[in-house]
Design a protein around this nucleic acid. Structure first.
Lengths: 341, 341
DNA sequence: AAATTTTTGATTTACGTACATCAAAAATGG
DNA sequence: CCATTTTTGATGTACGTAAATCAAAAATTT
């Protein structure tokens, strides 16, 4: 049987009340007594029974998720997963509120963060647009001892407690190697479709992609990045235009969302030219395109994992508890047509 | 506030004791009363507070992991992860026992399973060697209402409750496509190294690999499978021999363990010939080989995830509880040198 | 209708922790 | 050494559920 507070009391030769004062950092304990108790805790290897403690406290964790609006499939999926998390609220003792803000809108995001100040909140998760105003707003929350987790896209120079998302530089590098090797030594141009250079994840993917291309695939030339704002229609017109302009394009890398438009553009020219295509985010559209051969590989982050991880980290941080680091590492999924889930 | 047993009692117009009898399937409740209570439970949306219930029951979950001995890195890693799980035993209310059996030894595995009969066990996880004797022994445990989970390698025609491992057919297919596309239309032979055709995961990987090769890469010819018994030294001699015998070999697929030997064999001929190599299981050896270019891709299953998933599923099954299916799906990791964790 | 069995209610204790209250003891100041 | 402050102990209640006991009520059998 694992030791309880009673065992600590006995081992330290003090009363239960004193043990409680030490454990919950209540005042009124002499330093020598506190140290005696802490020594006993370490010595008998006491671990607080979090379930019992939460039961006694009647604790609930009021959490806030700030997610972008926008009708691309990825954000749709992310909002769905947050919604799923609300359905588990009862059993997880969470109370999740969802705030939607326009995508890439720095003032709106900063304002949304600032409304949370002073409230009784156990954690905030946000899809960050990487701007100093946002970092500053996050820092204000952190200084109020509110756990903050960035989701999907991280912040530069921020005091946020955790980032629940993939390593986007590695993702970009991986995309480059896949595209490069799949093209097998051919020479030609590549067109790159991003959402916005305002978000760190897109910038980092591009950075990783460019680095590997430059180092290892000198025969492939990168055309200027197209910014599709994760909007399917804009993406389609940009890509169609680029493909019409240059017949040397032999590969496409889409590092953002809005791939529905990209797929339409590629399909439109498919009968006349052969393109190797690597995109991000597995959605119903990219899945179908992977299966029918329009796309060659999909890099993915599992939004469900990210949301569940964010919840676990916020709860643990709120309690000053440790997490299984390895379990919270969000992995880059690579899907070929053969290993679709 | 979520409803409690008191609320059910009030809603159903019965006493707490009766609610308890219904909830815990104790005898002495008329059918009509039971139905009244069950209706109330559904109606007010009662969900049992598992933490409180476990506290009251003082429940611990005695779990058994049966893992193969053998000194290859993968099984080492797996045993390490099970050991890590034992360290979390306190907080997870588990009591994990580890039984080691010789690899690919059907009678030993069946015997180990049979010794568990009649004991008070909340769950058994085993790395299965796929044989009727093993399935039969598993079925005996299942018929005693003991939750059984296969780990890493599954059983054919078995009543086990769950399989905590990757889809190995998909893994084999993915390996084939990677190897095929990386070879970019070249013609030549491929050598395949397996551990043993006695385990289902190896058979399935081979099956998936062969299928895609036949369908989509007709220029690549598969040489007879080498069985290295997941033993590094045997693997090395088999692969060296094969490479010496045929100069047409341009690719290698290793679908089992013991890659230390394979890597040595490939390195030995590396100066004179170019090989594209895809292997399974990320270990310190395959990681280093991926980084130095000896290997082109590593397919991996995360042993830590598998073990943690197995524990969650056994506990949930023991309690007759549901799990988040998506969370328990073990994914195939694909590592290139760029996305190593 | 009485005797018997089955079903239901009322109540208590326990799990491990949190938190509050009040009294007692110890330390500190003058 | 007394008065004051600080520290410690003793005790009780609560969280939501499990599990047990005993009495009371209802249903069933004879």
């Amino acid at each position: 049987m694992r030791p309880t507070v009673h065992d600590i009391a006995a081992a330290a030769g003090v009363s239960l009340a004193t043990v409680d004062r030490v454990l919950n950092q209540r005042p009124g304990v002499r330093l020598v007594t506190r140290e005696k108790v802490e020594a006993a805790i370490r010595q008998i290897g006491y671990i607080r029974d979090v379930a019992a403690a939460n039961l006694a406290k009647g604790r609930v964790y009021p959490l806030v998720f700030i997610v972008p609006t926008g009708d691309n499939s990825f954000m749709h999926g992310l909002r769905f997963e947050v919604h799923q998390a609300t359905l588990r609220a009862g059993i997880e003792r969470t109370d999740i509120r969802i705030i939607e803000v326009p995508p890439f809108d720095v003032p709106a995001l900063a304002a949304a963060l600032d409304t949370l100040q002073g409230h009784d909140i156990a954690g905030v998760a946000l899809v960050a647009t990487d701007a100093p105003e946002v970092s500053a707003a996050v820092d204000r929350l952190v200084s109020e001892r509110i756990p903050v987790v960035t989701l999907v896209s991280d912040l530069t120079d921020s005091t946020r407690h955790h980032y629940a998302g993939i390593d986007n530089i590695a993702a970009g590098r991986t995309a480059a190697r896949l595209l490069g090797r799949f093209l097998g030594g051919r020479q030609g141009d590549l067109t790159i479709l991003a959402g916005s250079m305002l978000v760190r994840d897109h910038r980092e993917r591009l950075q990783g992609f460019s680095a590997v291309m430059a180092e290892e695939f000198p025969k492939l030339r990168l055309l200027p990045v197209l910014e599709g704002r994760d909007d399917p229609e804009l993406a389609q017109s940009l890509v169609s235009e680029a493909l019409a302009e240059s017949q040397d394009i032999i590969g496409v890398y889409s590092l953002g969302a809005g791939n529905r438009g990209l797929i339409a553009a590629v399909k439109a020219v498919r009968s006349t030219r052969e393109l190797t295509v690597v995109v991000h985010e597995l959605t119903q559209h990219t899945r179908a395109a992977l299966q029918d051969g329009t796309i060659d590989a999909v890099l993915n982050q599992d939004a469900g994992h990210e949301v569940r991880s964010a919840v676990r980290v916020m709860k643990a941080t709120a309690d000053g508890q440790a997490v299984i680091a390895d379990q919270e590492r969000i992995r880059l999924d690579i899907f070929l047509k053969d290993n679709l889930p």
